Simulated assay, not measured.
Amino acid sequence: MTTTTPAEPAERIRVALVDDQALFRTGVRMLIESQPDLQFVGEAGDGAAGIDLVRRTRPDVVLMDVRMPVMDGITATSRIVDEQADEGGPSVLVLTTFDFDEAAAKAIRAGASGFVLKDADPEFLLAAIRTVNAGTTVFAAAATRDLLRRFEDRADAPTVPPAFADLTPREREIFDLAAKGLSNAEIAGHEFVSEATVKTHISRVLTKLGLRDRVRLVVFAHEHGLVGRDAAGA
């Protein structure tokens, strides 16, 4: 009689953690180590040490606190994204105490792939890690709504970037739906096209506007007052 053992995942997701609270780091490390498809590669207590950790361990995903001594998470995120850009680099998932604040917004502009609340359910954090590693962005609950409100309340009139004029009418339609938070499947249903077609349009939109991903697209759209703009003309 022969016995077999369950096969381990061919390639585990390498996760690094940067946070100044030792107890929080211990909890997250234990959570990640309990997952067969995740590998905890190291931790750091401030942004500067976090940059060095990323250089040494080459993680796939970095969990990054926003407010830390020595160097904050925004600066660290920006440097990690810039340094690792040519090599693909890790996805940075920001950890924040609030649904959406200015610090989280700055982290997204700096290159983070999304953010989750520190008190999120363990299952949500694990799902967020897997999601950003797969190339999809993650927003904490209610964050998109808070983002919209933040830019709607601004007193200064936004300007339309010249690059927006390079989008075709169909690309502007896709842009608007993506900026409103619709998924590829929802956009496909709305436009009566395939998800593959939507992905192609999104990729072209990001390239023309010089944006890294859909998180930046949402921020870009609301910063410049482009949500709901007539698709036929800028």
Rank of each mutant, 00 (worst) to 15 (best):
A16C: 08
A16S: 10
V18C: 07
V18H: 02
V18A: 04
D19L: 00
D19K: 00
Q21M: 11
Q21N: 14
A22K: 12
A22T: 12
L23P: 06
F24S: 15
R29I: 04
L31E: 07
I32A: 05
D37S: 11
D37E: 13
L38W: 03
Q39R: 14
Q39A: 15
A44K: 03
G45D: 08
G47D: 00
G47M: 00
A48K: 14
A48H: 11
D52Y: 13
L53A: 05
L53H: 03
L53E: 02
V54D: 05
V54T: 10
R56Q: 15
R56F: 14
T57P: 07
D60K: 08
V61D: 01
V61Y: 01
V62D: 03
L63T: 04
L63E: 03
L63S: 05
V66F: 09
R67M: 15
M68I: 09
V70Q: 06
M71Q: 11
D72P: 06
D72F: 03
G73R: 02
G73C: 08
G73P: 05
I74Q: 00
I74D: 00
I74W: 01
I74Y: 01
T75F: 03
T75L: 08
A76D: 02
S78E: 12
R79D: 12
V81H: 04
V81P: 03
D82P: 04
E83L: 11
Q84P: 02
E87Q: 14
G88C: 10
G88P: 07
G89A: 09
P90T: 10
P90N: 11
V92K: 02
L93Y: 03
T96E: 04
T97K: 07
T97H: 06
D99P: 12
D99Q: 09
F100K: 00
D101S: 04
D101Q: 02
E102S: 13
A103P: 01
A104Y: 04
K106E: 11
I108T: 05
R109P: 07
A110E: 03
G114T: 04
V116H: 02
V116M: 10
L117K: 10
K118M: 11
D121Y: 09
D121A: 14
F124Y: 14
L125K: 03
L125Y: 03
L125W: 01
L126D: 11
A127L: 10
I129F: 03
I129Y: 01
V132Q: 01
V132H: 00
N133C: 08
N133S: 09
A134L: 05
A134T: 05
G135L: 06
G135E: 06
G135Y: 04
T136P: 01
T136A: 12
T136W: 08
T137V: 12
T137M: 08
F139L: 15
F139C: 05
A140K: 01
A140F: 03
A140I: 04
A141R: 12
A142R: 15
D146G: 09
D146L: 13
L147A: 09
L148W: 08
R149T: 10
R150V: 07
R150P: 02
R150Y: 13
F151V: 08
F151W: 13
F151I: 12
E152S: 14
D153W: 10
R154Q: 13
A155P: 07
